[in-house]
Design a protein around this nucleic acid. Sequence first.
DNA 1: CCCTGATTCGC
DNA 2: GCGAATCAGG
Length: 174
Amino acid sequence: MNWTDERVEKLKKLWAEGLSASQIAAQLGGVSRNAVIGKVHRLCLPGRAKAGGTAATARTKRPATSAPRAPNYASRMTATRTVTRTAGATVMKEEVEIDTIEDREAVPAGNVVVPMSRRLVLTELTDRTCKWPIGDPMKDEFHFCGNDSPDSSPYCTFHAKLAYQPSGERRRAR
DNA sequence: CCCTGATTCGC
DNA sequence: GCGAATCAGG
């Protein structure tokens, strides 16, 4: 891949937006993050304030003009409720895990019930990022969930519950 | 071990 | 000019 004017412009734009070198490399395609960093230097673009920021940090620095996120219903995907009951003279307390995924049906129409995603594009996915697709594959905004997926699962804990479920069983994921 | 940017240096 | 290898750091 060579640095066409077009690609250089995109590089400048994304770098200015605070994306990390690896993310820019992924979006451009065909180049490594090292290539991106090297190019940034050759272009004499301003470096980052402090070396070694996290991807999350870079994302946080995004302009406040970015679209508001959908409510993070996934954060209450599971919750614990303390249940008190008595057995004979013994008072027992136990933490019961409640699967609130069924709360989807209580969510006002129009709200998308999807966990806060990292909005990764295809080339940004790794072994441990959730590959649940979000959006229309034919549109620019198409991306993947990108949240951490445990144990090399292709999906995060939220989407794993939706995946591989016969449609009739989805209602009771878990 | 994951990630980050910075630097070096052979090509 | 390019970018892999390497370094230093969170």
